[in-house]
Design a protein around this nucleic acid. Structure first.
Length: 165
DNA sequence: ATAAAGGCCACCC
DNA sequence: GGGTGGCCTTTAT
């Protein structure tokens, strides 16, 4: 099930964060992407790739305001992640992991009632469009390994450190 | 319609 | 430590 792309006033912008520069894409429907790209070029490509039909207007002020809300005040703005049903169910499960805790890919698979879909869970988590707010960094391997991270394992490590009481 | 590629896991050596 | 086979979804032929 493919949902509508962001329509009402789609915007994006760059801002600082505790984990390096981030790119936030948002519309009146909520945040549809939060990434930690290596450079601006990569961020554009990523957006274009995810939302080929959407024409985002640059708005760094808006992005900064959101980043401040998220990383300084610890608020949780409205999210609007686009993805299949399977992905949605997993991203929802991720949001139930409390800050400072971790779980495993296998446990998530179990939580959504698809204990055998572990591999697919990994792929779906990798497709998470909204880093940090959908806390894919809190998922590690069953054998204790860190697992992967779309924007580099260092970033994953930093986030986990940051959340440690 | 089919193939190939994944942020995995359990099991073996 | 490393390799293998099975599992399931998504994306690209």
């Amino acid at each position: 099930m493919r949902q509508l792309p962001p329509q009402s006033d789609p915007s994006f912008g760059f801002s600082n964060s505790p984990f390096g520069e981030c790119c936030i894409a948002f519309s009146n429907d909520g945040i549809c992407a939060l990434t930690f790209p290596e450079n601006h070029e990569g961020a554009y490509l990523d957006l274009e790739n995810r939302f080929p039909e959407t024409d985002f207007q640059q708005n760094d002020k808006g992005a900064e305001r959101l980043a401040n809300q998220i990383f300084e005040k610890g608020e949780n703005p409205t999210l609007n992640p686009i993805g299949s049903d399977f992905q949605q169910s997993i991203w929802k499960a991720l949001q139930r992991i409390p800050a400072g805790e971790t779980t495993t890919y296998a446990l998530i698979a179990e939580a959504i009632g698809r204990p055998k879909a572990v591999r697919a869970v990994g792929t779906a988590i990798g497709a998470n469009p909204i880093a940090y707010l959908i806390p894919c960094h809190r998922v590690i391997r069953s054998d204790g390994g860190l697992g992967g991270f779309r924007w580099g394992l260092d970033c994953k490590k930093k986030m986990l450190e940051w959340e440690k009481k």
